[in-house]
Design a binder for these strands. Structure first.
Lengths: 121, 121, 121, 121
DNA sequence: GTGGTCTAGACCACC
DNA sequence: GTGGTCTAGACCACG
């Protein structure tokens, strides 16, 4: 289901959030779809339940999901309005790219990198 | 000399490292130039000396500077064609770019972003 | 686990680093193996936690280990074909060998010494 | 005259000592030869006079030179009995080579390095 | 619980 | 004076 990279510097709960948002963006999850239980998810991903909880409480605060105590967690109707996520991703990418430029990484290397990423499909 | 933002998310010692690397890349610091003493810098920046030390011991590990106990810290001859810093920066950029791709950022957007960053060279 | 000689001229954190690298080279530690926690190690070795931290942040910079905040420190996948440590060691060896040559040590003595060290492989 | 490597980890005063001993070993300096004045040497090498003083007071303690206040510093008659220096150099080389082996440097690389050093003449 | 950052201050060798 | 090592303890984010 989800792919978690324990090596990554980005916190595990952020990775979960990202992937839920992804599934919404690609249409695999639609408003009012029910998600796996926290316990089930934490079991499958071999993660502490608190980590998963943290991800979904964040998503709830961002109105991507809503939780119905005793019934489960569902995708909210407003989940699709997130150009925010994409914009954030672009903004972060820009920040990192600028810092890389500052450290001496050349334009051609960056272009090559982008081609690499989109060629690996 | 250096500008430190104590409220930034990036650690103070990283800010120092970045600014030294910058001064090297812009040519303001050249190989064998002597840097301010740790005590002087920590005084001017109102930072603990150990924080400044951390920055420079990192820079030494990355071969940007070399330190000569009793004499001071100097820019190394290999500071410009630095590989370590550039490789790390490229690796980080790739990670972030992959994650951005996953979030729906398109190839053309990334190419545009790179062009933006490098002006119209 | 580790043996630390507080009276040695080589810094304690270097001793820790060396022993970790050794355990990797002998195969006792493999990629993704989890190491003892900093607190546990510093307790067992009767060292301040910061000294142990220093060792592992060095090892992380050299890509021998990776650290995952909140989870622990792990042997990295690239720990074995490590280039950074080997390159640094070779560079140091060259410096010392050159200085020994200058002091009158002959080529044949050096070859003999190398053979000695590696037994008769 | 002397070549000082400010990058080296070995203290400057040790480098001066080594080179004086070298000149004795190669026969360029003979017993009762007069050396340059401390002031002159420190000027030519761009070193603090205290550093040069330290080197020569060490050499005097080791009976390699003797100083005649007001007249200068001279090579002593016993200067030539130093297998000690060579043995120390070999011992240090062995230590470093062992540590390099532990870090994964291969025998063939060391042999290559020795050939390099003695081929550069 | 884990590791990461920062401060504070001791002591050392070297210049 | 310089940088290097080590100890001690605070506070943070993450699991």
């Amino acid at each position: 289901m989800f792919i978690i990279d324990l090596h990554s510097r980005t916190p595990v709960y952020e990775q979960i959030k990202e992937q839920v948002i992804n599934l919404v963006n690609t249409g695999e999850l639609k408003p009012d779809d029910k998600l796996m239980s926290l316990r089930q998810l934490s079991g499958e991903l071999h993660l502490n339940i608190n980590t998963v909880k943290r991800a979904f409480s964040d998503l709830e605060a961002e109105k991507i999901v809503y939780s119905a105590p005793g019934r489960g967690i569902f995708i909210s109707e407003t989940a699709l309005d997130n150009t925010i996520v994409k914009n954030n991703a672009t903004a972060e990418l820009k920040r990192i790219a600028l810092s890389a430029k500052q450290k001496g990484v050349k334009k051609e290397d960056m272009i090559k990198l982008v081609n690499e990423i989109f060629g690996e499909e």
